[in-house]
Design a protein around this nucleic acid. Structure first.
Lengths: 236, 236
DNA sequence: TAGTGGTCTAGACCACTAT
DNA sequence: TAGTGGTCTAGACCACTAG
């Protein structure tokens, strides 16, 4: 394959060429040597190193001095920040949602603080009963900053909140969760179709995209149907 | 301050000089310009860029084209992988432990699989009742690969498992946790000093350091005393 | 206009690995 | 010995920002 032509930066051309060669290769496979790429693209070696550096930082390549550059074994990664739809898909289950409430409200003190707003500011309150493979799994109350989501309530509610946040460039980049065990309230038990005072898992989330708080939610899961899985790590 | 002298690599000298200038500075403070560092250290600009690149990747500096290089605002980071002692300290509580059991065992099928061992291999089983500010908080069963921890049982049990792992260069770099809500067994209720069938939070962990599985544990927390906090993020 | 970071060149020498 | 990545030089031009 010839080096691509275009007005793209040279280190980007090299980087994407190598990425193309390398994606799909088994870990440990050799990448082209730096001097080989210098020849192929007719660029300086520092330019090639800039390209390779980026792929090394990404975790795609691994350099071994004296030996060469190789496809890195995929690093164990921390959990992605996902919503219910994506999480259930990952478990091979079909997520369904029943909207119980979707309206504009004035933020109370707790929600205002969590969303970094002022009390009384407009928020979207969205309450859903969520099923996996037809069985009630959890009850979720999400609060969203209306200013960040103009026309959200009018545009017809999506299935996946996180998809529609992503579509607006507001995919969460950071989230803080708190998790407790508790007993269901009578109302929760009724909606979740469990005995009164059944054990539940309560999960609160505050999700941030860049500097903006995009979601504050409280979710109550049936303990008999749901285990929370989290991966932690120092890698990215 | 004069450039340090020594046989250290030049880009390392520059990097550590800048790090020293910058740590403690407020986010947004300017770092020295690249050309200024070229003058000060008498090195090539590419060498300075190599030094600065490292600090940018670390998240310490931020480059703004046309303006300069500045101290980055600390990025929101995912949770560190901590044990009970460290976690309680973070909450301003004093962690105490009472060892209920500490012995060499043969790994059963479940523990063997989780520790990436063969059934019957030697493992350390360590059961502790853990208190925070004197109140029972959780009951933890940890299983450790004895081969990775020679003399662990003989050397007197430490307070913090994670400290002693760190001392052997086995600080976890990745962990997978699962969290469920449940009711305490009679034995658990007795040890945790709660009513029988009280609500508890069950937390399982499999912690890895590099490629080695260093800890497998199951912990049961009093739900009335403990909330799990987790931060997730794409930054490192 | 002066200064900044972003890109790029065309070399060089080193330590290390593999044959 | 040949090849690899690691380090380093002494320049250059560009687009952008700020005064």
């Amino acid at each position: 394959m010839a080096p691509p032509v275009g007005r793209a930066l040279k280190h980007v051309q090299v980087r994407e060429y190598v990425r193309g060669l390398v994606t799909g290769s088994a870990p440990g496979s050799p990448a082209p040597s730096e001097r080989e790429l210098v020849q192929r693209f007719g660029v300086a070696r520092m330019t090639v190193r800039q390209a390779m550096d980026a792929l090394v930082v990404e975790g795609l390549l691994e350099r071994i001095p004296g030996r060469g550059t190789f496809v890195a074994r995929p690093r164990r990664a921390p959990s992605k920040i996902t919503g219910f739809t994506e999480e259930m898909a990952r478990r091979g289950m079909l997520a369904e949602s029943q909207t119980l409430l979707a309206r504009r409200e004035q933020a109370g003190p707790g929600v205002a603080r969590a969303l970094s707003l002022t009390e009384g500011d407009a928020v979207v309150h969205w309450r859903r009963l969520r099923r996996a493979d037809g069985v009630p799994m959890c009850l979720e109350d999400a609060y969203l900053n209306e200013v960040l989501l103009p026309g959200f309530l009018q545009s017809g509610m999506p299935t996946s909140l996180y998809d529609s946040l992503a579509a607006r460039g507001l995919r969460p980049t950071w989230a803080e969760d708190s998790i407790t065990a508790d007993k269901a309230t009578p109302e929760e038990a009724g909606l979740l179709e469990v005995e009164p005072s059944s054990v539940v898992l309560r999960h609160s989330r505050r999700a941030v995209s860049g500097e903006k708080v995009v979601e504050v939610s409280r979710t109550v899961y049936r303990a008999d149907r749901f285990t929370l899985w989290v991966q932690l790590g120092q890698g990215c």
